[in-house]
Simulated scan of single mutants.
Amino acid sequence: MNEVTIIGLGPMGQAMAKTYLNNGYKVSLWNRTKSKADNLVKEGCFYDRSITEVIKRSQLILVSLTNYDVFWSILENLKTDLNGKVIVNLSSGTPQEAREVSQWIIQQGGSFLSAGIMVPPSLVGKDDPNSYTFYSGPKKLFEQYQADLAVLTTTDYKGEDVGLAMLYYQAMLNILYTSMTGVIQSYALLKAGKINAIDFEPYTHEFLKFLPTLIQQANIAAEIDTKNYDGSQQNLKMMLAGAKHVTETAKEANIDFSVPKSIEALFQNTVNDGFGGNSTASIFETLYANGD
């Protein structure tokens, strides 16, 4: 029987445990709050209050915690080495944090893969084309355990640099957070105008379906890679004028306008740097001004 240990039983950890259990795995659990393991134990999982004992039970150990600080607080004081253990960390963090943890685990005799799971708990273990997880670290190690990891979601291996999974993960979260914030900001604007968010929702859905077409037509990725920001169809000065109107409308509505104001400021700074006649993609030059 295949075995796996899961450390951390938030919604994601619980979803992973249930998925492995349903796929015939012997599942061992650890969580600081034992009550979160109770139902899983009734279903057939093993739980021990000692994280050291739980780690001894499986070669493959999946960690699902809030962040790397919690990871360190739990694992740094282990009373056992990690010889032969494979730690797959699905906790959120930065690329550098993943590299530092990897070095420590290797020093303890273990191996490490970093992972960024791109689905909510409800889609773990489901056959869904949008369900996938980024992985990075030693390729041979990933290939050895890919079948086990694919029980959760489709696997997307990004490379030997253990920080790459977190880089892709945080880039995707940046798109998520800014997009969701933009939608909610618009709903706040509408509510100030006595319009229910639910009445505007169909427009939101239709626009978000159209957005990939706009991005593709704007040729944003290619323009950034070539630094050729074609403003012949729509330039940043025009976009800045529109951004100012969004900010002013939010002010008139007496709602928080920090989100549109930050976009306006970004556009203005880029125009001030001489890109007013270029495309919107030229804001990359401001964003990346201190990049490597």
Rank of each mutant, 00 (worst) to 15 (best):
I117V: 15
D148F: 07
L167Y: 04
N130G: 12
S136F: 07
A37N: 09
Y20T: 08
K191A: 02
V271T: 11
Q217K: 13
F112C: 09
I61M: 12
Y288G: 10
L21A: 07
T286P: 02
N254D: 15
K209F: 00
L236W: 10
S262F: 06
M239I: 14
E53K: 11
T155H: 01
C45W: 02
Y132P: 00
V162I: 13
S232Y: 06
G182Q: 12
F134C: 08
T80K: 03
I175R: 08
N174S: 15
P212S: 09
T33N: 10
T52A: 07
S114Y: 03
Q185R: 09
T280K: 01
N31E: 08
Q144P: 00
S131H: 10
Q146L: 04
T52L: 00
Y203S: 06
T153I: 01
Q59C: 05
A289Q: 15
K209C: 03
K34S: 10
Y20W: 09
A241Y: 07
Q233D: 11
D225C: 03
I105H: 00
A243G: 07
I283A: 10
Q103I: 06
I255A: 09
S136C: 10
K126Q: 08
V70I: 15
L164S: 03
K194Q: 14
A265W: 06
A188V: 12
E248Q: 14
S91D: 14
Y132G: 00
Y47K: 06
L176K: 03
V88Y: 00
L75S: 05
T5M: 07
Q216V: 07
K227T: 12
L211I: 09
E206W: 08
T155R: 00
Y177H: 15
L236P: 09
L266Y: 09
P260V: 11
S186G: 14
E3M: 07
L62H: 13
K194H: 13
A192K: 11
S122Y: 04
Y68G: 04
D148H: 14
N39W: 06
G182P: 07
L29I: 02
I61H: 05
L123D: 09
D38T: 14
V151C: 02
Y187E: 09
C45Y: 04
C45I: 12
N31R: 03
K251H: 12
I51A: 01
Q108I: 07
M180D: 01
F200T: 02
Y168A: 14
N39E: 15
G110F: 07
I117L: 15
I87K: 09
L208N: 02
K158S: 01
F46P: 00
I61R: 06
Y157S: 03
D148C: 10
E3N: 13
A221H: 11
G193P: 02
S64F: 04
A250V: 04
